[in-house]
Design a protein around this nucleic acid. Structure first.
Lengths: 208, 208
DNA sequence: AGTGAGGCTAAGCGCTTGCTCACCGGCATG
DNA sequence: CATGCCGGTGAGCAAGCGCTTAGCCTCACT
């Protein structure tokens, strides 16, 4: 029942379609364990225990502990990338699209800061080929933000000297939310998203 | 000689007065190992090996592996806090002081990104009492930035709706430099510091 | 020359780790 | 009712972990 409580409490929609049920329980257990203690400090017994199973059960659904991290990382990055590319290709002025990208990205990182922490800070533990795949997705995220900033500069809406550097900074600012955000703290995910959208617009020199 | 090469290559001035020599060599070896692989994935054999010593030698100079991390963390936080409090108490307009704080803080995080990575991302591995001490220093860092922003608002130089949130965002932006900065990348620490000082001024709505 | 302290090592202890394997119950199917 | 399979367990293996201990070498000081 401990495991079930954890399961309903902290499971974002991202894991909805992980099947079978036991695999999903293991995945969300791993997310929480990795986020709390880090990948290397988490034991397979800890993960299995949180999911209410014996250690051996983990290996029925995942080849290794690293594969669990890889799956989590992949789903998380897919989610983040969809947000950013959606904003890049969406309708509206560059300012509207940048604000939308930042708002949604930050909201996700705050709301699902447990998952986001694993996704953003445990990359070093991935196997080489998995790391390469994830790195490609991260570069795409970078590119999506840069594209929006470039659009704004071309349209004359933004005033940016160093497009690449500023785009990196905006994305970096958003990512770091996963590190410091505290659900019991002063601000809600919505509030942080709103604040950060405004800050991003200022960073690119959008008229305001 | 491998260890000696490492020693001269990546040792920031911060460790200058760690004595005796063997203790310093162990410390810089630990910094590099922790930064590359993370605290939990680093073995005492790895640290000692990088310092050109046997595993047992570590325990002559440090009680535990965690104490090494604690010392690194303390020195690093002291350094960062000095920068920020120096800027807070320094001369000049709030805008000048904020720009100076960001420039110096970012420069340090880029130049010594190995150390900074350990300092910023391995806090979770600290023992309870050590973690409490470090947390206090981090709160002081937060306060120093907030004080500068408050000064600017009071002087009418800054235009900030959410002082606390904006101060957190500025500091967060700077900290995250340690995560992504690559010495072989496009920008030098000086360039990033300059860019970020400008971005911070925009974030607080300083007249530009 | 003799001595004691400090810095260091080789060996290894006790324990935990990721992972495996022989086995088992329930259940859909012939 | 027999059968095969899917999802699970209990026990445990080999390896590696943090850390300790007994003892050695060096060298300042007498």
């Amino acid at each position: 029942m401990d495991a079930e409580a954890k399961n309903t409490e902290g499971t974002p929609e991202a894991w909805r379609d992980v099947t079978p049920d036991a695999a999903r329980r293991l995945m969300t257990a791993a997310v929480h364990a990795f986020a709390e203690r880090g990948y290397h400090a988490t034991t397979t017994r800890d993960i299995a225990g949180r999911a209410g199973m014996s250690p051996a059960a983990l290996y029925i659904h995942y080849k290794t502990k690293e594969e669990l991290l890889y799956q989590i990382s992949k789903v998380g990055h897919r989610f983040a990338l969809d947000i950013l590319e959606g904003a890049r290709d969406g309708a509206g002025t560059p300012a509207e699209r940048l604000a939308h990208a930042v708002r949604a990205f930050v909201r996700w990182h705050a709301e699902h800061h447990t998952t986001a922490r694993v996704v953003q800070y445990e990359l070093g533990a991935l196997a080489e080929d998995h790391a390469a795949e994830i790195t490609a997705m991260r570069r795409a995220s970078d590119g999506a933000v840069r594209a929006i900033v470039e659009d704004g500069v071309k349209a004359g809406d933004f005033d940016v000297a160093d497009v690449r550097g500023t785009a990196v900074a905006v994305l970096s600012l958003c990512i770091d939310v996963a590190r410091w955000f505290n659900p019991h703290g002063r601000s809600t995910p919505d509030e942080v998203g709103e604040l950060y959208a405004g800050l991003a617009l200022r960073m690119v020199g959008a008229a305001g």
